[in-house]
Design a binder for these strands. Structure first.
Lengths: 308, 308
DNA sequence: ATTGCCGTTGCGCATTGCGCGCCGGTCGGC
DNA sequence: GCCGACCGGCGCGCAATGCGCAACGGCAAT
């Protein structure tokens, strides 16, 4: 018999001053209550209750045990309360890993709104363009931007999508001409992003055959930060192939002009990724839901790129 | 699965940082440990542990739960310690009911010795010649002096025996003559004890046939206290038929002389009586053992009466 | 004397308990 | 780079414990 259940039954018996009444209150047969108390007494090798047929009284050890049982049961229920509450209402610390550029542009204000909803929640947002080991480093959630989730033992939820937009400033295009085919990029100044690995190949797709086109571009500027490259592109330093969310505002304002639009590679996904735990905490679930509702399949950055 | 056992397993897993190690330490199969933790997580609807194949880490709620589990388990084991210790070593309050006269004469010093052995024990000795309801009034133990224990739902242990000794002072016998047969008591001043009920019959036994002889004695002094009657007898006020332990010292000193010795009724028992609990506490067990060893079947009062 | 309620106990049945063995996966040693 | 050891999880078969039901003895009130 479960020891805590036996304690609960014993406490009930004492407070009800009756085995039968306790059994009724607990919704079990009285034999269960009787056996529970007898089992406690056997384990403790002590008499807890003096049974007269007509009434019962606590022995001295029974009284001491009763007091402590009440304390223990209180503590247990308080503990379960605290722990269980975390599965209903977001609370505690939420550790999120997210890519740098995307988050700076799109995650700041929304997260602030999210946090306002849950006063008991703390957020630790770690911006990093590395692919972090989410469980090893103790993150609750990561936001990944990639064409395909390869880490199969993680749960990935698609939040939205984006695509790579190739563009340059009007001034640059005026000066160097607008390429009409990806291969022409070889003769252009391309602003390269170093985080994707040493091999700097830009991906396109043939609009007729659908075949991928890889172009090993070159250029004098390489950075591991999209914002820097974007600023360089706006300034007219070269052509940038960056995510739509990075270029959207500049395109909307006319500072950058999309090129090679018909050769655009398929869009990639923006995912929320978390460990495949059987019990997803409320804080993670709520944040994922929040992010899903935030952008959907027609996020603002895509809209901005479409209208061009 | 027992909730406390599951907590213990969880705590073990955390401290060992491994399910397998915890299982080995606890002497169970690892599937049990795995299921115990999984069951905890299911009940709490929360993830307690982040499992990587190679190592595991506590989640935030897991850490909080772990801390509280340790506290709860400490409290439980401390409680069991305290309660169980009472079944090994006498402690707490020992409530004893005992007859007045016998205890004043024979229980004082021995009980003092007994108490010296157990510093953690307290004694509440209630002297009373009533037949108390031992469980109703909350006594741990009662000492009963009677020919036969009739309260069958109590456990009775024979500690020793005594008998009724009929005697008078030499001066009384000189003045009124020594009766040679119980029936002659009808013509004597008999000092009567009122606690045995309204019918005042003294019991004897025919030494040849073994038949009981009942004599409805009379006399001008009735008391519910043996000491008073003994004092009266010593003073020469009449014949007393009292327990051997009451008269022993006076007989030894010659202040009282036994009479009608061959008509003496069979001895009666001195019993320790306690409720028929399945778990007899150490304090009761030890006191019973102590009292049994104290007198045995040849108590000092019997010796004193035999030599006469 | 009878009735009703008490706590306990035996019984039958269903549930859960356990250990065992296997699986996918990861890491260390050679 | 490959193999073996170990990890945690899971399904299986068997045994143990769980439960409710009903009967029992005891006691108090009627």
């Amino acid at each position: 018999m479960d020891r805590l259940t036996a304690m609960e039954m014993f406490v009930r018996v004492v407070s009800a001053k009756s085995f039968s009444a306790a059994a009724r209150q607990l919704g079990v047969s009285k034999s269960v209550v009787s056996k529970a108390v007898a089992e406690l007494e056997d384990r403790l090798r002590a008499q807890l209750l003096n049974r007269t047929t007509r009434q019962m009284s606590l022995t001295e050890v029974g009284q001491a045990y009763y007091d402590r049982c009440v304390a223990i049961l209180d503590q247990v229920s308080e503990t379960e309360q605290i722990v269980t509450s975390g599965s209903r209402c977001p609370r505690g610390l939420l550790r999120v890993s997210a890519p740098m550029t995307f988050s700076v542009l799109n995650l700041g204000w929304p997260l602030s709104d999210f946090m306002e909803q849950y006063p008991e929640l703390s957020l630790e947002l770690t911006l990093n363009d590395r692919v972090v080991d989410i469980v090893e480093e103790g993150f609750d959630l990561a936001i990944r931007i990639s064409r395909r989730l390869k880490d199969s033992n993680l749960i990935g939820v698609k939040l939205s999508s984006a695509r790579t937009v190739t563009c340059a400033s009007p001034k640059y295009l005026e000066q160097f001409g607008e390429p009409q085919h990806p291969r022409e990029l070889l003769k252009h100044h391309c602003l390269r992003y170093s985080n994707l690995g040493p091999a700097q190949e830009w991906s396109f797709r043939d609009p007729e055959t659908g075949d991928p086109i890889q172009v090993a571009v070159s250029g004098r500027i390489i950075a591991n930060n999209g914002e820097v490259l974007r600023a360089a592109a706006v300034k007219g330093d070269g052509i940038i192939a960056g995510p739509s969310f990075l270029a959207a505002e500049d395109i909307r304002q006319g500072r950058l002009v999309p090129i090679l639009k018909e050769y655009a590679a398929p869009p990639f996904g923006i995912y929320a990724v978390y460990p495949p735990n059987r019990h997803v905490s409320a804080k993670v679930r709520r944040l994922v839901d929040f992010l899903k509702g935030l952008w959907g399949e027609n996020p603002p950055w895509e809209e901005a790129c479409d209208v061009c």
